[in-house]
């Protein structure tokens, strides 16, 4: 009996090992695995990681009381402790009321308009990025968990298509780099799988924070393409699709990336 169990176990682990080897290339890997050692060290140290400046700035803004008297903290707690980290890990989500994809930055802007009744921060505004970084950081260590069925399924399919279309004078799709050549070098830089789990992240290249939407925009600009407007449907579809590819990866916000 014991022997049988052991041999079954052995067989099972052998099958797992073989399967693991066959899938090794397809394994979903965080951008963390592709950056240089010193970049990883920088990310891992909360004092060295410049992204934590954004987290702290975000925390202040979260507690800042507008004229309406209602700050983010009024509802969600001074440290955001009343926010459900599992829900945060679901973003971007499909919002039934709006009938559209809502990203974390969209949700914050909705809150500013409808709850705090204050001026809505512009997309890519430093303060909005800081707020998004603070909120997403609350879910650090949670697994990205974007919905892939129901209303999201056809939307993610559209995002998938956008991921495979060529853009700009350099005429490449996202997939050309991030599906075909991750791990290879473009000049001195290693190509990642283009995962979203670290965003908003501090970018060494720009010396600034970027959320996933801004990062996509920066990529498209590099392709000498016309980027999509931050609130364009394409931006939301692409971001939702890219984040869904990261399902299962741990949220690292604020990551440090090239």
């Amino acid at each position: 009996m014991i022997k049988l169990t052991t041999s079954r176990l052995l067989l099972a682990s052998l099958i797992l090992l073989l399967a693991g080897a066959a899938w090794a290339d397809k394994e979903v890997k965080s951008g963390y695995e592709y950056v240089k050692d010193e970049t990883r060290t920088m990310q891992d140290d909360d004092f060295e990681n410049p992204g934590f400046l954004a987290v702290e700035q975000g925390r202040e803004l979260f507690n800042k009381t507008p004229d309406s008297g209602k700050s983010c903290a009024s509802c969600h707690g001074e440290q955001g402790e009343k926010l459900d980290v599992k829900s945060l890990a679901r973003y971007p989500v499909y919002d039934k009321e709006q009938g559209a994809i809502v990203r974390l930055e969209d949700r914050i802007r909705n809150c500013q308009e409808q709850q705090a009744k204050t001026d809505v921060l512009a997309y890519y505004d430093h303060e909005l990025l800081a707020l998004e970084t603070f909120v997403r950081n609350l879910a650090k260590g949670e697994q990205v968990n974007v919905q892939t069925d129901g209303e999201m399924e056809p939307l993610l399919k559209k995002g998938d298509e956008l991921f495979h279309i060529r853009y700009g004078l350099i005429d490449m799709s996202c997939a050309h780099c991030h599906d075909m050549y991750p791990g290879q070098f473009i000049r001195g830089q290693r190509i990642s799988q283009g995962q979203g789990n670290g965003f908003p992240a501090y970018r060494l290249d720009t010396g600034e924070m970027a959320n996933l939407d801004l990062r996509i925009k920066q990529c498209l600009t590099l392709m000498r393409a016309e980027p999509f407007a931050p609130d364009a449907e394409e931006s939301k579809l692409l971001e939702a699709y890219i984040m869904s590819r990261s399902n299962g990866l741990k949220i690292e916000t604020p990551a440090v990336r090239y």
């Binding site: 060529r166 853009y167 005429d171 498209l220 392709m223 000498r224 393409a225």
Partner: peptide, 11 residues
Amino acid sequence: INRPGKGYAGR
């Protein structure tokens, strides 16, 4: 070329 950036159209 799909979506050439500003200043790049026609180039």
